[in-house]
């Protein structure tokens, strides 16, 4: 494809909408993941006592265990959320865009 054809796709409103919405979505999830992880690490550094609090009165299990495992599960869930949306909404938007250009 010619460079000029790419320029015109780059100006296409459908393309712009796809990129805008996906970029916001992807960066929001990235920042969320970074924030959750760094919050966990800061908790470890500044409030280790909180993580060592028993889960319920008299339990050996601590709050830190569901929180730590929770970060792992959270990482998996956000990847699932992104893949779900990208495989449906964004792929549909891409297909529409390609159809419009090749018409």
């Amino acid at each position: 494809m010619q460079e000029s054809a790419y320029h015109s796709i780059a100006e296409n409103p459908k393309f712009k909408e796809l990129v805008r919405s996906r970029t916001i979505f992807a960066w929001t999830l990235s920042i969320l993941m970074l924030a959750v992880y760094q919050a966990f690490i800061l908790l470890v550094a500044y409030k280790p006592g909180f993580l060592a609090t028993p889960l319920w009165a008299g339990s050996v299990a601590t709050i830190g265990i569901p929180i730590g495992l929770g970060v792992i599960v959270f990482a998996f869930i956000v990847t699932g959320i992104y893949v779900g949306r990208a495989n449906t909404r964004y792929d549909d938007m891409t297909r529409e865009l390609v159809q419009e250009i090749t018409k």
Binding site: A26, W27, L29, S30, M33, L34, Y37, F40, I41, V44, L51, A52, T62, G64, I65, G68, L69, V71, I72, A75, V78, T79, Y82, V83
Partner: peptide
């Protein structure tokens, strides 16, 4: 004990970033 979990969490969190970006 618990320190091992902190360590493994760190090794996983890069994966969503690979996906998103």
């Amino acid at each position: 004990g618990y320190d091992g979990l902190i360590y493994s969490v760190g090794w996983l969190v890069g994966w969503p970033i690979i996906l998103f970006l």
